[in-house]
Simulated scan of single mutants.
Amino acid sequence: MRILVTGTAGFIGFHLASRLAADGHLVVGYDGVTDYYDVRLKHARLDRLARSNGFRFHKGMLEDRAALDKATEDCDPEIIIHLAAQAGVRYSLEEPSSYVSSNLDGTFNLMEIARQVKPKHFMLASTSSVYGGNARMPFREVDAADWPLTIYAATKKANEVMTHSYAHLWKIPTTAFRFFTVYGPWGRPDMALFKFVKAIMAGDPIDVYGGGQMRRDFTYIDDLVESIVRLMAVAPREGQPVTGSGVVDSLSAVAPWRVVNIAGGQPVELLDFIEMIEQTLGKCAIRNILPMQKGDVTETFADASLLTALTGYIPTTTAGEGVKAFVEWYRNSSY
């Protein structure tokens, strides 16, 4: 198939594009290669992707409609997978305007492209952060997600409702997937695992927020990619909800649109996660215990029953296994 993937210089986009190209699809990647974090890592990902005959790359910002049009024309996509965004919960406290321009204006441009090319499936990344102040656990797709705690989460929730309107108006089959703390080789340097491993190996202290009592539903990158690949073939159809024991479909009543959690539903306490890193490295961390940061939540916990009902799959890689894979990559990586 012909697939347009935004964000292919990024962590998730790189892994997904690699898998799709290896599966024999034509993948056209699009990315602004911004300096939000070390661009050497982004270029190293793109260099690896460039070795595949099934991958072509276009550099440009989401806000640049002309560049997006050019990338789209390069493949006439049957599927669009929108992963590019200004990421990072904490950075959104420092530079909120970048989230508005990239995540709102940029996503709107891609929605307009989808309206014109009418892909078989329009897929986009959302986040578990949209659940925000929701205290009900585990998080279900049909639960209220109306209390975001950061502008990042607010823009992602906006992306969901924006694409729902286009799915309704223009009958574009659309799936929004909510990611839960994705980690693994080639991960982002601003995320906890990367920062912890780097600091512990260097003998530097690590900042442990919330007293280490926070819990996260970690999702290993290969499991996430497998979930997306399987969801590609399950484009929502209005009036055709998935059924099954204990499953509640998020399919819209007025549009071919649904939202799906991607996670294993096995939260891990932060202190336990740190101990896994210590055991893998054979070295103890110097822990700087700090209070909760603004915008943080105490726990994320996904109900993954809809993902399983749609795809027959659920992420199963344990946090211990994933940490070992990351550490192996980190020790051997020079970008």
Rank of each mutant, 00 (worst) to 15 (best):
M123D: 12
Q116D: 15
A135P: 11
N134E: 03
H121G: 04
V117H: 05
H121S: 02
P138H: 10
V117N: 04
P138I: 02
E141V: 09
R140C: 07
M137L: 15
R140A: 05
V142Q: 05
G133C: 01
K120Q: 14
S128T: 01
N134D: 05
K120N: 13
R136T: 05
P119M: 10
K118P: 03
A144M: 09
F139H: 15
F139G: 00
F139A: 01
L124A: 14
L124T: 14
S128M: 09
D143I: 04
G132A: 02
V117L: 07
R140L: 03
V142K: 12
T127A: 00
A125T: 14
N134R: 01
V142E: 10
S129I: 00
A135H: 09
H121T: 00
Y131F: 15
D143F: 10
M123F: 13
A135R: 14
V142P: 08
G132M: 02
K120F: 03
S128H: 07
F139I: 04
F139Q: 04
P138Q: 04
R136L: 14
F122Q: 09
A145H: 11
M137W: 13
M123K: 12
T127P: 14
S126P: 11
F122K: 05
Q116F: 07
P119A: 06
S126H: 09
G132R: 04
G132N: 06
A125S: 15
A145R: 08
K118E: 15
F122S: 10
E141T: 11
T127Y: 11
Q116N: 11
R136C: 02
S126A: 06
A145E: 03
R136I: 11
L124P: 11
S128Q: 09
L124K: 13
D143E: 10
A145V: 07
V130C: 01
G133Q: 05
P119D: 14
P119H: 10
G133M: 10
P138F: 11
M123W: 12
G133S: 14
H121C: 04
T127W: 13
E141L: 04
T127E: 11
Y131Q: 04
N134W: 01
A145W: 03
R140V: 00
M123Y: 12
S129V: 00
N134G: 03
A125I: 02
M137F: 15
P119F: 05
V117I: 15
V130N: 07
A144G: 07
Y131N: 04
F122V: 07
M137G: 00
G133H: 02
